[in-house]
Design a protein around this nucleic acid. Structure first.
Length: 712
DNA sequence: AGCACGCCGACT
DNA sequence: GTCGGCGTGCTC
């Protein structure tokens, strides 16, 4: 959209002099040193479509407007829709004399015969490159994502189009290979509708499925076969995975299936030039298969036939940059808009996945029960009350069952031990009565430092002599212990067994098929060649006690991820989870029924009016700013307003984040909730009100966020 | 956002 | 007279 200013047309005030400065640069660049036009319009312009509509990268992006520029004749051919350009922006009249503004980067979004802007158009300053990097299809996707998230188009474009690298552009890309042959179903045969799904992809149809993958090592190959089947139809295929290790596994599987040349990998760790080179190969249509991490969700695959997303519950699928689009939503938009097949796969199922099935938008792609039984390990639970009788088990802080399983399994292969990540360590509590340990001064939660010293997590005050307020007990209970301590203690308990760790800063991809204790935090589990003999899931208490809507779903997801690396029960594979057996996520793990869990989770959320059945938005800022925005927003009639609640300030020690109020300011947050189907109008209303606020120059900031992730 | 305009009161 | 507060409008 261009602005619709109805200002009276500016007359030819001031004559040639005032425009001269403005056109000088363009004229020089266009190598027309003699041109002396009396106005911008009079410059030698492209004859057919002399106007370029431009998305200007910086400045005013909140207003989400395009700006029209004239196209100097020498740029006519190159200034096609999608190319990067430089324009002068912010020009103004200073004492009756126009001064050219700053140079900004932008993208041509359209060429037009004329502009609806009633004023003189400035010329494009430069075509940076003739490469059409923001083609009509990608632009439409960015627009749809911006609308869905009440965000600005330019913000989304910045996520979708990688930074330019001139050297990569100058290199030719190889010719696109002929479509490969249709792959065999392989282990898809284990799923009732698996081979049929591949057939549909290969014949050019657009099936949509929510796939509950069987545990074990086969899912990367199965995902690769779905991509290959789509490529066999002559169409493009895109798969988004949560991290580089998962990408590497699918890449290896697809390369084994098709060889080189049919696909590229788009991840951050290939470096900016190489990544841009691959992205260009996709954009130019030379490669039709893409496997990548989050940013690849925007990959401009030509003639897209399939979008696939693996493990949509993983938090890395949520883009951290504004407007924080989620890969699942972006791919859903693409499947609908670009009429592609859709495959949402994972070892677990999110409530969102269950909703796609519930609404009949997608079909479930699951294996029959006997296949699940054949592939899954035996899962045993250990409740909180079980005490270790064995002295060695006590020393390792393990219940006897966990101890026995570990000892037996270590004779047959590696044992995976999943421990909570730092930061997930729950609060300390009184050993006797379980009352949470609180700071005597500010009632903040107490924390145990690595040194063993006790201090308050809010005010930082060291606590030298804690005693329980309820029962006057003096002993604390650390419900879970950190990775390092667990590693130390297990190592001492099994002195002949090597201990390996895999965590945030040093993630192991694989471990060999030999007895070893493999200690890891959730998400960093190495794959064991031949499968683990057993797994201990020690973080149940920590995962399930978080005050989060998704705590149960997330706990189950992490357990399934670890447990799926264990050998099937028939081969002795055993999983021990330390959590109360009566809890729903624990039962779902024991029965290995992630889809059933998700269905119940969805039903419960529907009943409580929670997302994803209802849609929500959060509005954060000072009380005055929040109420101003909401008063002026045309919210849907059935909007439910929850709050406001005060936004907590950043605790001392933690660096201030964007979502934290600035020091000394008090922010509050309103939650808005709408019934199913009204999410779009809620986003539109908030966006419109936000734009109006900006234009009115009320610039006390208000943060608008669709689908906020952290609702309690 | 960022910057120049203009309309007000207080000053050399 | 003239300097400078900040409220307002504009950017193709």
């Amino acid at each position: 959209m261009s602005s619709e200013n109805e200002r009276p047309e500016q007359g030819p005030t001031g004559g040639a002099g005032e425009q001269l400065a403005l056109i000088r640069e363009t004229v020089r660049k266009a190598e027309e040193p003699r041109a002396k036009p009396r106005s911008w319009r009079a410059a030698k312009l492209a004859s057919g479509l002399p106007v370029a509509r431009v998305l200007v990268d910086k400045g005013l992006i909140h207003l989400d407007q395009f700006f029209d520029y004239s196209v100097p004749e020498p740029m006519d051919e190159q200034a096609q829709p999608g190319v990067r350009v430089r324009v002068r922006f912010g020009a103004r009249v200073v004492r009756g004399r126009r001064e050219g503004g700053e140079l900004h980067d932008g993208f041509v979004v359209a060429r037009l015969p004329e502009s609806d802007y009633r004023g003189p158009l400035a010329p494009l300053a430069q075509v940076l490159s003739p490469e059409p990097v923001l083609g009509p299809e990608l632009l439409r996707l960015c627009r749809a994502v911006a609308d869905r998230y009440a965000g600005a188009l330019a913000d989304v474009v910045q996520l979708a189009v990688p930074p330019r690298h001139a050297r990569a552009e100058s290199r030719a890309v190889p010719q696109a290979p002929a479509p490969p042959a249709k792959p065999d179903p392989g282990s898809w045969a284990r799923y009732a509708t698996g081979p049929g799904f591949l057939d549909a992809l290969a014949t050019g149809a657009n099936p949509r499925a929510v796939w509950t993958a069987l545990p074990g090592p086969h899912w990367p190959d199965e995902l690769a076969r779905a991509l290959a089947a789509t490529l066999a139809s002559g169409r493009g295929a895109l798969a988004v995975l949560p991290d580089g290790r998962a990408v590497a596994r699918v890449d290896a599987a697809l390369t084994a299936l098709l060889g080189e040349g049919h696909h590229v990998v788009l991840t951050a760790d290939s470096g900016p030039e190489e990544r841009y080179r691959r992205w260009l190969a996709v954009n130019r249509g030379a490669v039709r298969g893409v496997i990548g991490t989050r940013a690849a969700m925007f990959a401009p695959v030509a003639d897209l036939g399939l979008v696939a997303l693996w493990d949509d519950g993983d938090s890395s699928h949520a883009e951290p940059h504004a407007p924080q689009p989620h890969a699942r939503d972006v791919l859903l938009l693409r499947a609908t808009d670009e009429q592609a097949a859709f495959l949402l796969g994972g070892l677990s199922v999110t409530a969102e996945g269950a909703q796609l099935v519930d609404s009949r938008w997608a079909l479930p792609l699951t294996a029959p029960r006997e296949q699940v039984r054949a592939a899954a390990p035996l899962v045993r639970t250990v409740g909180d009350g079980d005490q270790a009788r064995d002295a060695a088990a006590r020393a390792a802080r393990l219940p006897s069952l966990a101890w026995q399983v570990t000892r037996d399994a270590l004779l047959r292969g590696p044992v995976l031990v999943q421990v909570p990540r730092r930061g997930y360590v729950p609060r300390l509590a009184c050993e006797r009565c379980r009352e949470p340990a609180r700071c005597a001064r500010c009632a903040g939660p107490l924390e145990l430092a690595e040194s063993g010293a006790l201090h308050c997590a809010w005010c930082g005050r060291p606590e030298a002599a804690w005693h329980c307020r309820e029962c006057a007990g003096t002993r604390l209970r650390a419900q879970v212990v950190g990775a390092r301590r667990t590693a130390d203690e297990l190592g001492r308990a099994f002195p002949k067994v090597p201990v390996r760790t895999s965590g945030r800063d040093a993630v192991l991809a694989r471990v060999p098929d030999q007895p070893a204790l493999v200690i890891c935090t959730p998400g960093a589990e190495p794959v064991a060649d031949g499968g683990y003999a057993a797994a201990l899931l020690l973080d149940g208490w920590a995962l399930l006690n978080r005050p989060d809507l998704r705590a149960g779903e997330e706990a189950l997801r992490r357990w399934l991820t670890a447990a799926a690396l264990v050998r099937p029960a028939a081969e002795g594979g055993t999983v021990v989870v330390l959590a109360e057996p009566g809890l729903r996520p624990v039962q779902a793990l024991v029965r290995w029924d992630p889809a059933g869990y998700a269905v119940r989770e969805l039903a419960e959320r529907a009943e409580l009016g929670f997302p994803p059945v209802s849609r929500m938005a959060s509005v954060t800022g000072t009380a005055a700013a929040v109420s101003d925005l909401l008063e002026n927003a045309q919210l849907p009639d059935d909007t439910d307003r929850l709050g406001p609640v005060p936004v907590p300030v950043a605790p001392p020690g933690r660096p201030r984040r964007m979502a934290d109020p600035p020091p000394g300011e008090r922010w509050e947050r309103m939650l808005l909730r709408v019934p199913p189907g009204s999410g779009g109008s809620l986003a539109t209303a908030l966006k419109t009100a936000q734009v109006a606020r900006m234009a009115r120059k009320h610039f006390e900031p208000v943060r608008v966020r669709m689908d906020p992730p952290d609702i309690g």
